[in-house]
Structure formats: C-alpha cells, structure tokens
Design a protein around this nucleic acid. Structure first.
Lengths: 354, 354
DNA sequence: GTGAAAGCGCTAACAG
DNA sequence: CTGTTAGCGCTTTCAC
C-alpha cells in the first residue's frame, strides 16, 4: 500500500506519465463547450433533451478533449447497474471451468456486460479475501464455483444484496441461486458402472477438492452397499492439473499387495497419467485395469486407449448462470433458482464394454 | 441486536430482494460502533492508529453489519489504484488467446489484481465501444490485442493516461507499450520453409483478421521474390474457429485448374479442417499437399498427420504484459517498452521433411 | 432547455 | 487518538 505521495517527476513530454491528471471530467468538457457540467452529462445520457445546437457544441468538446465518462462516479452516484458480473473459479487451467467462463463471457458480452475474473485457487481463505474485493466493486451479479463457502462469505454475500449463482454443484440451501449437478450421483453412477462391468477391487485417485471428495464419498458408500471391499483412496493435492500426479498415484496403488482392478480419477488429466503409467508398466487397460476420468476434456476421446469419463456441460452452466443474473439485473425474478444440468457417464475403451 | 434494524437488509427468509438498499456503509457501521465514519475507515485501512479498544468495537460492528467497503467510492475518492487490469481479446474460443489470459490472470492475481475481460469480436467498431466501457472503469492498465486501433481509440487511451500494452504484434509506434512478434516475419519464414521443402504452388487460407492478413501479405511478397507463382488466397470470415472453414476452403482450391501443392492456414483449426478434407479426398499429405497451421495448439502434434505449425508463446505474452503493467502501477517506468517474444516454425508430418 | 445545489461512500487534510 | 470538513465525478431534484 505504498502511497506514492511524491508528485511524479512528470516532464511534459514523458512517454507515458502514468497519471497526467488522468481523467478529463465533465467540467473540462463543460468549460470547452461553454456550458455547465450537467449539460455535458445530458449530452451523453439524454441527448434528445438538448437543443441540437448545444448538443453539437458539447459533442465537439467531447471529441476534442477525449472525454470518457467515469463509470465509477456514475455508479457510485445512484447504485445503478455496473454492467459488471464477477466470477470466481479455482483455476482456469483445469479447463473444466474454461468452457464455463467462455460461455459466460459470450452471453454477458452480448448484453453489454463485462466479466470480472478472480482465481481463488483451491484454498478457502483466498476465496474470502477475493470475495471482498469482488463485492467491493458492486457488480450486478457474482458467479461462484461450488457451494461450500465460509459463513462469513455467505453472510457478506447476502448482506450485499448482490445476486449470486453458485455453480458446479447443487445444494438445498443455496446462498441465492445454484446451477450444477450432483457430485454424489456421479460417484454412485460411476461405481455402479464399474461394478456392472465386472470390476470388483475399486480405487480412487482424487484431488483434495471438495467436489471431488463428494464424488469419492458417494462412490465408497455405493461400493460397500454393493458388497465390494472398501475402495482404496489416494489423495493428491489440488489442483489436479498435473499428469504426473496420476502416474505416481497408480505407482503407489500398484505397490500394494492387492492392487485394484479399476480406478476412478477426479480429473481427466490424472486419468491420462494413469493410462500412461499403466502403459509403461505393461498393465492391460481395460482388462487388467479399468480407468475412468472426470470432465471429458477434448483429449479424452483420443487418448490411448480412449478414456471413459464423466461429461458435464460447462458452457451450459456458464450460459445459464449468465441468463439468471441478467434476469435479476433487469429486475425480474428468475424463474428457476435451482438448475440441474446433469451429467453423462461416457464409457470408452479404458473400461470393459459390452 | 440494535434497535434500529431499519437499515439492515434482511428478513432472513426473503428470497432475494435484489436491492435492499444494497450497501452497508461506513456510517451504518459507525452508528453501531458509536464512532465516526472516519474511524471506521481507519479501522479498515490503518488499524494500528486506533486504540485497541476502539478497533475491537469497530470490528465487531463490521462483523455484525456485514460491511464490505465500496471500492467504487474508495477509488473515486483519490484516483488511487483500482487493482484492476482490463484485457480486450477478439475471442477466447480461438484458444491462442486463452493461454495469454490464463497467465495474465495468474500473474495479476499473485499481486492482488483482478482482471476485467472484454471480447471485442473481430470487428473494429465493437472494440471502440468496449474500450470506452473499460477506460470508464479507470483500470490500472489495459491489455489490447493487436496494434491496429482506430484513431479515436488511440487518442482516448492516451488521454486517459492509463498504461496500455498492445499484444500479439509489434509496431514502431505503440500507443504505450507492446509485447508481441512480427507477423510479417512469420509469413516470410513459413514461405521460405515451404520453398525449401520443394513446394512451388503455394496457397493461403486466411481469416479476415488484420494479423493473419499481415502474415499473408509477407508470405506472398516472399513467394514472388523467390520466383514462385503468386500464391492463391482464400479468405474466410473471422473468427477462424470453425473446422468446416478449412474443409470448404480446400474444396475451393481443389476445384481450380492448378491446385496448390502447399497451403498455409491462418489457424490450426482451419488447418485441421484441411487435413480432414484432404483425407476425405484421398489427397496425400504431405507429398501431394503440404499443410501448415498457426498457433500450435495442443491438438496440432497429435493430428493425423501431425500438423506443422507456428508456435507462439501466449503465456509469455500475458506474463510480460502483466509485469509491465504492474511496474507502471507501482510508479516505476518499465524498462523495455517493446518486447519481441518471437515464434518458432515447427515442422511435423504434414509437410515434407529432410 | 439549462443551471445550481446536494449527495452517492469514502478518505485526505486539518483540527482538537 | 478521534472527529470535522471538504471533495473525488457524476447525476438527481428542483429552480429559472
């Protein structure tokens, strides 16, 4: 928080004197156009209410001075719409989220809204911190990843009165709105699919990420319900974006007395790592080892062998979130406050078929 | 708690009253804590200057009210740093830019800055419009894609006194700073590479995008310098993100009396389309037709056959841009105002080797 | 059709 | 250590 108190050296011709006095204001324009400040304001916001003659003069002055209205002041003035939506994702690299961000931007952009992007990482304290920064800017809406937020965060969000969409999960007690799917269902369904294919000694390779852990918990529960031995679980640190994680994890599982005959990984990248490590060790996928990933990223279908995975429509999540938020911004009460986008278990060559 | 619950937003069960008066202000907190507004401000910004006793009371009040400082007002007040950087890209989908955005966010985020994202599309008017919206928010810096901007845009940007980094291109007359590479060089080098491999009837499949057109122009010039026939050029509408564009373009070229023996595409996706169409027509790549893409996206190496392409380090562009901007924000004059990140022509199986 | 005053929420600058 | 005053740039009354 260095307050750069010292006036900048600011030689008049410095290539880029960071703050040259920065903002041209309504008053500057007003002086040039020989009108009052409010008239300049009206020239911008309600040109039809000015004499054509005056309007022309003001417009000329605007062009001459290079005036750009200060949105900060505009918003501050009346708590009006900022045409701003904020989104908080753990990371963009994982790419499950990049599809959502993409469609979020597209949808918002089409309506003249802009996106403020924050990356929380996978750690909670960081999220709280960032959230304050976002709320502080008084956006028209906030898109959050996941439904597990600190009490503090929930309270602030509610107090701020800013529409919130939680995503990539479902909950019965959303802060406001929620668009996602059930991770527990994913865990159950994948477990059932593996069981149906004849796999019996199941294992999990999972990042320490809340949603991944939900899938695992349900997977384990379902496994025991089906009378299978309790699945072994290898945890790796989030974010699950390193292929090497998958390789190492499989190595660890293989060192056991009773190695598994199928693994469910919490990301496609880690699953790919498992495939590669299996190849290196001469393990037969899918006969000796079934592998299922999560996310169904582009490469999944073309991996050797093609990777079974769980597909979630990220872009749909983004588009839906944007639509709900825009409805709020327009003052409408968005119809569904809870949207289940579902998921699909895709079985490919990395698990036994037929 | 306090008798005047009047101001607090919340019947706890109101579904979401969009604007309940929205902001808890310093004054609300001050009233609860029985201090003045400025004391609340100090509790947030300079806690060490308050009596521990007072500080505790104010903090309690902040927690109780759910107060989050209004950054709009804070910034407006002193033209201080917004901890905000804006970026404008044609589109995220094309993915040449997504790597840049990723590393931009990462670098900024590490310093507590946030990213405001705008998508200009490939049309200029749209850029001007968006630029106003961005400048209006008075960010600490702006990252632009390309170096061709309207005079109006250039003037506004300069007048605003906001540090600007233009990217993905180079120019001798940047608005402020520039981080990129020479598209003309790319065109020349690809032309030379194809020529060196024995290709003679060159063609171009290009999106109507300024930078792609620069590459093409230099490619054509170099071809004639080398004594080759003037390359045919097929233009498709930007953005070049549809695979089908590549297929159609090749079909058109193949309808000619003298089909080309090599094509340089302005994007990997279009090049992939060409590969697919070539496969469908039984054209032998690389013997009968050499194909070169641009961007070296992830799939390029694994395309059938592996696609020759031009690799540009997008993340480096983003990181460099962020670093320059952050230096400006700290009041330093960034050392290099022009950074050439270069590029590499990668020759793979889609062109003849050896 | 245009202007003057007042205030959005916050914080410098100056009291006390 | 804490409070008062004033003003950031804009716009909403209310006059003229």
């Amino acid at each position: 928080m260095s307050d750069d108190s010292a006036r900048l050296p600011a030689p008049a011709n410095a290539p880029r004197a960071r703050r040259a006095g920065a903002g041209v204001t309504v008053h500057d324009v007003a002086r040039v156009a020989q009108v009052s400040a409010i008239t300049v304001s009206r020239a911008v916001n309600a040109p039809e209410r000015l004499l054509p003659e005056t309007l022309a003069r003001v417009r000329a002055a605007i062009a001459e001075t290079g005036y750009v209205p200060n949105l900060l002041a505009k918003q501050l003035n009346a708590n009006r719409s900022a045409h701003l939506v904020a989104a908080l994702v753990p990371t963009l690299t994982g790419t499950v989220f990049s599809g959502m961000i993409q469609s979020l931007t597209d949808t918002l952009d089409a309506r003249g809204y802009q996106l403020l992007l924050g990356q929380s990482g996978y750690a909670h304290p960081r999220e709280d911190e960032l959230l304050d920064a976002l709320i502080g800017r008084r956006p028209d809406g906030i898109v959050l990843t996941g439904v597990h937020h600190s009490d503090l965060a929930r309270r602030r969000l509610r107090a701020a009165g800013i529409p919130v969409v939680e995503t990539w999960d479902l909950t019965d007690d959303p802060i406001d709105m929620v668009v996602g799917f059930s991770h527990a269902d994913v865990g159950r369904r994948v477990c059932e699919a593996l069981h149906a294919r004849g796999y019996r000694r199941l294992a999990l390779i999972t990042a320490t990420d809340t949603r991944a852990e939900q899938r695992c918990a349900a997977f384990i529960t379902r496994a025991t319900e089906l009378g299978l031995p309790v699945p072994q679980q290898v945890s790796v640190e989030a974010p699950p974006t390193r292929l090497g994680h998958g390789r190492e994890a499989l190595a660890r599982l293989w060192a056991q007395a009773q190695p598994p005959d199928a693994v469910f990984c919490s990301s496609d990248i880690m699953a790919l790592g498992v495939l590669i490590e299996a190849g290196a060790r001469g393990i037969d996928v899918p006969r000796q080892l079934g592998v299922v990933g999560f996310g169904d990223l582009e490469f999944a279908a073309s991996a050797p062998p093609a990777l079974s995975s769980v597909r979630v429509d990220g872009p749909a999540i983004g588009a839906t979130a944007a639509t709900l938020l825009l409805a709020c911004a327009r003052g409408e009460a968005p119809a569904p406050r809870r949207v289940d986008v579902g998921f699909t278990v895709i079985e490919r060559a990395s698990t036994i078929s037929g």
